[in-house]
Design a binder for these strands. Structure first.
Lengths: 358, 358
DNA sequence: CTGAAAGCGCTTACAG
DNA sequence: CTGAAAGCGCTTACAG
């Protein structure tokens, strides 16, 4: 009885990893089948009425051999990876970093891990990243989709791959999403400035047609109108993602210096712009809030230790994170195949600090 | 000729995913073997002298069917996942967020993805996370090991699982690591304060015996000694990870108010402590640098927009990130099985700003 | 109560 | 130049 020739893997196992124990090892040592071991170790022993005696033995040996089920093999068999793909603009941006952390926490409660990709707000990048992760690596996605990524999202839709959008969405595509009420947040912030007596309120935003940014602009404009203030196009500046630093300096100079009617307040629509904007303001020697008041979306650490402290529109990151995971979990559960997309809009938290005092 | 009964997966495939195309689909449609298709699609057609005609056909059909190789299946077969496990304290902490981003960038150049876990500096957490990811999910680890995680690292060592440590390491364990010269950085920063004429220089650090923190303390003490200044234990305060906020406020009060000989400068050994510390200092109405000078490790955005701007010890995050991936890649390459651990110490960048001006 | 067998989608040593 | 077959480590429908 000659054994059939054993195939040898390219990376020889023996030197590496000291041969991890597999289901088979346990089965052989105990003289039972893999089936039984698998059942027992998955806690389905009782249900299959396997004797307590046998169960105990299996569990003991598994512990002794420090058995760790190979998730890859499990994944191949079951079609589940227990992994979420997270596509955001930049994990180094504290806004997304904090969001990522909240998603990690909630995912972990459901037994899920997360894989992240930074798209830098570039549609080509997110397309490549989604494509890569779609190759059987993740069970679903949480995505903050960049400008121009509609087709990718539609592709996910078409392929019935579970996903939820965060921070922004595409109105023409039926998706689940978790966002904040950007219009209201922006409206309230601008009203606050107007009530404090500021008359020449400017807005510095990003050059994108993403819905969240558009809504922030609209909220700003509406508040001006409702306060009897004029909406001047030259007080609305937008900056690109790529040359942000220069663009912002230029915009702020125009807002504060070159015009006759210089702005007496600025609304920043993201913390990234806000932080750079504040640097520019300081470098120009302009005083906050005496020369110009400042309000910004998001609430990074920097705004609390800034002097003066910066009035902020804080987003409920914990809730955005946990809700996005929860909704994704529902989409991924086999039972709820036909459930409607969930569209969740959360309130922001307006924190008045010294930068907008009169 | 009755077909053998086809097994049906629990999650019925037909409704989901519209049956992704597999190697087999292509092979069948073309009337060739899976082997051939696999070879061609992996660019090994020439090498195996498969006719150009056939190669072209395979590649064409693959494109047409939008074939995406199933990475899980590939992983099971080859034992490689092309994924790195990243264990850091907290992805929401901008220091680790930026590091994560750099690691992501470099990993992507090598065709790798990254999975992150936040350990909150808790050994139990990192143990659980490493254990989870070790179940065939990642090819190697980049870890910022918390206090008390020596055994976990030794376990990786024992199992010959590739890993590299960042930010800190355990001197008693032979590992590859990428760190900065913490002693020198701290020494230089303290000397800078001494040269500016500050005499009562305090240090606020974390309650941990991690080597990086110890070295920062040692650098501080050495510089005091070399400047002819006394090292007073009551000027060295440490705070726990859990109650940081309260601890810091208390420590700063003690440093600045309750003592007769109040501190005239403070060295913060992390940006997390630094940011909270600055908040406390502001809330106490103490002026920087007139009442107390400030220097901090790390260089978050906050330090540039703070008023005054904060003198910082910036770590070369790009290089730490890229080096850690490069070293890990070497460890994971089958050729270099026996190479010695790489121990890399990088220089920090001292940025003098207004918070330490005299 | 338990086991033999199929199969997830790949890669690769081997044979021709 | 090409294919049949084994096998990575699991899970599960089916048979007894």
């Amino acid at each position: 009885m000659s054994k059939p020739a054993r195939h040898v893997l390219p990376q020889e196992r023996t030197s590496k990893n000291m041969k991890k124990t597999s289901l088979n090892d346990i089965a052989e040592r105990l003289g039972v089948s893999k089936t039984l071991v698998s059942l027992v170790l998955n806690g389905r022993g009782k249900e299959h009425r396997i004797s307590e005696e046998v169960c105990r033995k299996v569990i003991e040996l598994a512990k002794e051999l420090n058995y760790q089920p190979n998730q890859i093999a499990k994944g191949l068999r079951t079609g589940k990876t227990n992994t979420i793909g997270l596509i955001i603009a930049d994990i180094a941006n504290p806004f997304f970093g904090k969001l990522g952390r909240e998603i990690e926490n909630e995912a972990s409660k459901h037994g899920y891990r997360v894989m992240f990709c930074s798209s830098d707000e570039k549609a080509e990048k997110s397309k490549q990243q989604i494509g890569m992760l779609m190759q059987g690596q993740v069970d679903g996605f949480i995505i903050s989709p960049p400008t121009g990524s509609e087709a990718q999202i539609q592709e996910l839709q078409k392929r019935k791959i579970p996903y939820v959008l965060v921070d922004r969405y595409f109105p023409q595509i039926e998706s689940s999403y978790i966002v904040v009420d950007n219009f209201q947040a922006s409206y309230d912030a601008t009203m606050h400035l107007a009530k404090q007596g500021y008359r020449r309120i400017a807005c510095l935003s990003t050059q994108s047609n993403l819905i969240n940014m558009n809504q922030r602009l609209e909220g700003y404009k509406s508040a001006l109108a409702d306060s009897g203030l004029e909406v001047l196009e030259e007080r609305i500046k937008t900056v690109s993602f790529t040359h942000e630093k220069n663009d912002i300096l230029l915009a702020i100079k125009q807002l504060l210096q070159e015009e006759k009617e210089r702005a007496d307040a600025i609304l920043f629509t993201t913390s990234k712009i806000g932080i750079m904007g504040l640097e520019c303001i300081h470098s120009l020697g302009v005083k906050i809030p005496d020369d110009v008041a400042v309000v910004s979306f998001d609430d990074p650490d920097a705004y609390r230790i800034s002097n003066p402290t910066i009035t902020a529109i804080a987003q409920p990151l914990t809730e955005i994170g946990s809700q996005s995971v929860k909704v994704l979990m529902e989409l991924m559960s086999p039972s709820k195949e036909k459930s409607k997309p969930q569209k969740i809009t959360l309130k922001t938290n307006f924190i008045v600090r010294r930068s907008s005092e009169r």
